[in-house]
């Protein structure tokens, strides 16, 4: 256990974030650090501020006070678009895919590629061929091989395949940070296992990942560190090695507190 602050710059950091909705306090001065190449799980009871925290980073909410940093640089995200430009991609629980559109269109939704030359500049023609080829390559990279037909409508895919499309969209654009909000909540056992495998693959490729989950066994399987949220604050940061699942649940509910010197605030990888 290290107690001193790390010399590594967090790839994503929130300092004293506060967000209130009328009289409801969503975030009450949260600190969070995500280090390069790690999976940081964010767990907490309902209303602990997980979603609000993630929505601040993804640009869906603007915090009332506090600061956010990407790679040490202060950022302000007013929209999901700005967050993506800043290198933070979020896979929302609802997946944010358009079901009637095909896989390639979904991967490039909101940042379509136009044809080179005057067809693209004057007639604004989309380069569908290039988008399809690159989508196929991207899905192959992620090991999603049964999605052979890139022109398939997303609504014809299974839940796990849709999740893969949503994740592929995030990973496709060279982002630094991917936030996954309950990626396995709607999935069966096998599909969940594949999503967890994909999370580990993405980390091995150097991406930094925040994983929001209710599922303790899954969190303990893939997380490097676990950020426990409680009542709009950070209750503790622990590791799967330092604490048990029961400990984490106890921290979530306030039955247990962890002294700062026993927390894992520095990167482990």
């Amino acid at each position: 256990m290290t107690t001193q602050t790390s010399t590594v710059t967090p790839i994503l950091q929130g300092k004293d974030l506060v967000k209130t909705f009328g009289r409801v306090v969503g975030l009450d001065g949260v600190n969070i650090e995500l280090y390069p190449g790690e999976v940081l799980a964010v767990v907490g009871d309902n209303g602990a501020g997980k979603s609000t925290l993630i929505k601040c980073f993804s640009g869906a909410h603007v915090p009332d006070s506090g600061e956010m940093f990407v790679n040490g640089e202060k950022v302000v995200f007013h929209s999901t678009h700005e967050a993506r430009e800043g290198g933070v991609e979020t896979v929302f629980q609802t997946l944010a895919v358009a079901p009637a559109l095909d896989i390639a269109s979904n991967l490039y939704l909101g940042r379509e590629v136009r044809k080179p030359g005057f067809m693209g500049t004057i007639f604004r023609t989309l380069d569908k061929k290039a988008m399809r080829e690159q989508s196929a390559a991207q899905l192959r990279n992620l090991g999603i091989s049964t999605l052979q037909n890139i022109t398939q409508a997303v609504e014809t895919l299974s839940g796990g395949q849709r999740q893969a499309v949503a994740v592929a969209r995030c990973a496709a654009f060279g982002s630094k940070v991917i936030i996954l909000d309950e990626p396995t909540a709607a999935l069966g056992v096998n599909e969940s296992a594949r999503v967890l495998k994909m999370i580990q693959d993405l980390r091995d490729r150097g991406l930094s990942i925040i994983l929001i989950s209710h599922n303790m066994p899954q969190v303990f399987e893939v997380a490097d560190r676990i950020h426990v949220a409680r009542l709009g604050k950070r209750a503790a940061v622990v590791t799967p090695q330092s604490h048990s699942m029961n400990d984490v649940v106890a921290i979530m509910t306030g039955a247990m507190t962890v002294p700062v010197e026993e927390q894992q605030l520095a990167p482990v990888r």
Partner: peptide, 17 residues
């Protein structure tokens, strides 16, 4: 494409930027 996307799922479209 965005016309289709917005009609299909406005929330997803908004979140896609």
């Amino acid at each position: 494409l965005h016309i289709y996307a917005v009609g299909d799922d406005p929330n997803a479209s908004e979140l896609s930027g």
